[in-house]
Amino acid sequence: MQILATLLQVLAQTLEIYSLVLIVRVLLSWFPNLDWANPVLSTVSSITDPYLNAFRGLIPPLGGLDLSAILALVALSLLQQMLNTASVAILNSGMSYYS
């Protein structure tokens, strides 16, 4: 059970890193003159755009503002919380099993 709890924690940490990359992508989108052919920017875009596109289909831009990133970040946060909660529950159930 310890391995499963560790795996869930690693997944939650990976989602936290992805959330940070997503925030960077959103902030970079505020600068329209950036050269997206740059390898770093292109990589950030290729990593985050497929996920953001899934939410762009749900929430159309309102007045030129793309609010889909907010929903995308909320979804990632909820998934992180679920993974952390499951990890703690598994660790607690394993502790009571050995007591």
Rank of each mutant, 00 (worst) to 15 (best):
L41S: 01
T48R: 02
S99F: 09
A89F: 09
Q2V: 12
L52E: 03
I23D: 06
G64I: 15
P39T: 03
L4T: 11
M1L: 08
L52Q: 04
I23M: 13
V44Y: 14
L65K: 15
S87F: 04
S45W: 15
I47T: 09
L20V: 10
M82D: 00
I23G: 05
Y98L: 12
S87C: 07
A72L: 02
S45G: 12
S77C: 13
L71C: 02
V88E: 04
L20I: 14
L71G: 01
V40D: 02
I70E: 03
I47L: 15
P61K: 01
S42R: 15
T6Y: 14
F31V: 09
A12K: 02
L27S: 08
G63V: 00
N84L: 11
L11W: 06
S29C: 07
W36M: 06
A86Q: 06
Q80N: 14
E16I: 11
A37K: 10
P60F: 05
R25N: 05
S45K: 14
L41W: 03
P39R: 00
A89R: 10
L27F: 11
N38L: 02
M1Q: 06
I17G: 08
L83V: 01
I3S: 12
L22C: 02
S19Q: 12
L28D: 04
L71R: 00
T85L: 15
S46I: 11
T6A: 14
Q81R: 15
L71P: 00
I70G: 06
I23N: 05
Q13H: 13
A89K: 10
L7D: 13
L41D: 00
D49A: 15
G57K: 01
S87V: 07
